[in-house]
Design a protein around this nucleic acid. Structure first.
Lengths: 232, 232
DNA sequence: CGCCGATTTGAGAGCTTTCAAACTTTGTGG
DNA sequence: CCACAAAGTTTGAAAGCTCTCAAATCGGCG
């Protein structure tokens, strides 16, 4: 386990507050591994043997039932996933595959649970993480159930615009097909949403986006912190 | 605060493990209140001043955006809700109204946070609760995104059947319009789902249900613990 | 240049919602 | 006990949104 990877993991909120000694204990049992694109990491129903941290690349978490499949979440660096299942030692509810070449740190769930019991700063960080995940899931459900595809994409653009610091042109950080999955729609529908937003000041050329009339876009998107603010 | 109410609250997993002294501290600042049907308890965006516990009745948690509304969750006795917002002191993501005459215990969030800091058994119970909520939200998302209305209702019937101890006739515990909301569909669609299940051994008369061919129903419903088992 | 994958476009089908109206149930007051 | 009003439920028709399938187009890369 290289020091750089350790530092990456230590940097996220979930691990930054805990005692050095306990962090070291977690790292002792940890694996680091590089995966090619589209590698199956685990399947829903598997036991949660490891807490996963994406250090580089991207991981799609998806669910399957009766031959149908849906993307639930996409994990980007640097963040942890399947925290809840690891802690509760419960079966995984989602399957996971890499979307590109990815570097993961795997922490044995048993170690995580043990350190959780003895390190109260870590325990508090876990609570923060779980609360954040739960509220994220709620916001996601609101996004999907209260907005149609066009509105979801419009709000995504405004979110990106804010993140890019307000520049009126920026670049989509994902392939469109993956963006579509992230927004719970098909690539075809994303394509139609893009076209439908042209009259509202949205110009898309490949991955390049230009917002020429933000007022119009906001009028249509009606963003609200209760859905769109990840920190709220 | 009557001892009966105290006992009710103490009985749920979230509060059963904590030190008596700390529980007493929580109860000291608590309110108990009876609400008539369809009383607004709070609105999304409000500060989470109180952790709520339903002792009797039922509470609908719903979300609103741009004139549209969707039921997110229905809380029944005895259970806590808005745990995450209380702990993080974050704005509420859902609005709440009583569905019937209801009795609630309100615990000031400040007290909850304080006790959370000093009582590690409570903290652990909080983690369990949050993990359970989060996984519940995931299962819900899978249910809605992977199944159509008919399949959701079919699986609901099988879940009730299990809860009722396997009797082939039982009674729906909710009004149909609320059941529809709980299953994320309109009352009209629930009505159609009921009719569509007749050829699969489902007889519904008012609130009375009779399952005459469970094998057929299971063939259609394809229940899986990864969506339908609340404890998994 | 030519292939391969991603994206776009069009057509059609499926599921869900909405609206309106008929029907049933429930509860109240005469 | 009945009549009536109010609310809940069912049914039908129509529209909207999303998905699927197929084909055309665009793009990068060997």
């Amino acid at each position: 386990m290289k020091p750089e990877d350790c530092a990456e993991v230590r940097g996220i909120a979930l691990f930054s507050d805990m005692a050095e000694e306990n962090f070291a204990r977690l790292m002792r049992g940890a694996y680091v591994q590089n995966f090619p694109p589209f590698t199956q990491l685990f399947e829903q129903g598997d036991p949660a043997d490891f807490l996963h941290v994406v250090v580089a690349g991207g991981v799609e978490l998806y669910a399957v039932w009766s031959g149908r499949e849906t993307t639930m979440y996409v994990a980007y660096p640097v963040s942890a996933f399947i925290v809840a299942a690891s802690l509760k030692d419960a079966p995984l509810l989602m399957s996971a595959r890499t979307l590109e070449r990815s570097r993961l740190v795997l922490l044995p769930s048993q170690d995580v649970r043990e350190v959780f019991r003895i390190d109260h700063d870590f325990a508090r960080a876990v609570v923060d993480e779980l609360a954040h995940c739960y509220r994220g899931a709620l916001k996601d459900a609101k996004n999907v159930r209260l907005r149609n595809a066009q509105e979801r994409f419009a709000n995504y653009l405004l979110k990106r615009w804010r993140i890019e610091g307000g520049a009126d042109t920026f670049t989509l950080p994902l392939e469109k097909r993956r963006l579509a999955a992230k927004l719970s729609m098909t690539p075809e529908n994303l394509s139609r949403a893009i076209r439908a937003l042209q009259p509202h000041g949205v110009e898309v050329d490949g991955a390049k986006v230009r917002l020429t009339d933000r007022a119009a876009l906001e009028k249509l998107a009606r963003p609200t912190p209760l859905i769109d603010d990840p920190h709220c």
